[in-house]
């Protein structure tokens, strides 16, 4: 009965959505409301208004920076949720941890990872700093750092990686994205604008482009670091959980 009901519900929803999609304004038509209302201003004036070449970065960090602040909070929230369910490792690094992965990694893999990880991190720095002018940015860069640590941890184990990035480092940096946003927002107030104003009205006109650029970079770095730390902490929490299961089993 329940199954039939939910099937019915889903079918109804599907039909509804199909119906709507059919009656929506055509994709890509330059005359649709989306293409004529807000977008043109972004495309035409973003560069002079936000002093960022990459319009997307301009929109997500500047025009709609507040949304992005919410999104980085969502990411942080995901970490908090994981920690709430799995619990955090004890203060300091994890002691007495031995690499219990069923397959001890070979020398080739170890050497390669040791060789690659610095490059990956270098690349992520590039991505973060370049977000302002080309595709990329804090989210992507942070994900890349996180990815590098995932590789490192799978090969060398939790002990090694938590020795390199201990909780002492992660705990203050996990929320760096939100903190940086708040900082930039509050500085906007000091500069005479509203919250999250990058181009301070009180600042000299000639100084504004540089100001915006540097603040944007600051935000990008914050997002990158925060995102990376969140990923790493989630990874550690999950591995720890597996460890506990393995120990009890």
């Amino acid at each position: 009965m329940k199954r039939v009901l939910s099937l019915f519900f889903i079918a109804a929803l599907g039909v509804l959505l199909l119906y709507v999609v059919a009656s929506m304004p055509p994709m890509g038509d330059p005359q649709t409301p989306t293409a004529t209302h807000v977008i043109p201003r972004y495309l035409e004036r973003a560069e002079e208004e936000t002093h960022t070449e990459n319009v997307i970065t301009g929109v997500i960090l500047n025009y709609r920076g507040y949304d992005t602040m919410g999104e980085v909070t969502v990411i942080f929230c995901a970490l908090a949720a994981v920690l709430a369910v799995l619990g955090r490792e004890r203060r300091g690094r994890i002691r007495g941890f031995v690499d219990r992965s069923p397959v001890p990694s070979s020398t080739i893999v170890r050497t390669m990872v040791r060789f690659m990880v610095p490059f990956i991190i270098l690349f992520s720095v590039y991505t973060i700093l370049h977000g302002e002018i080309s595709p990329g940015g804090g989210f992507q860069g942070g994900a890349i750092i996180g990815g590098s640590m995932i590789i490192f941890t799978t090969v060398f184990g939790l002990y090694e990686s938590s020795r390199r990035i201990p909780q002492k480092v992660r705990a203050p940096l996990e929320g760096s994205a939100v903190i940086v946003f708040f900082l930039v927002g509050a500085l906007g107030l000091v500069g005479g604008g509203n919250f999250l104003t990058y181009a301070w009205p009180h600042a000299a006109r000639g100084l504004q482009p540089a100001l915006v650029t540097w603040l944007t970079v600051l935000v990008e770095v914050g997002i990158g670091l925060g995102g990376a730390m969140v990923l790493i902490s989630i990874l550690f929490a999950m591995i720890r959980e597996e460890e506990e299961i393995a120990l009890t089993a």
Binding site: M69, T73, A80, R91, Q167, A171, G175, I179, F182
Partner: peptide, 23 residues
Amino acid sequence: RHFPIFMITLPLLGAVLMPFLGY
């Protein structure tokens, strides 16, 4: 005029600072 935004962001800021304090 600025009060509402601080009403919203202060708890969020507090939240992200908590892990460090917890440490």
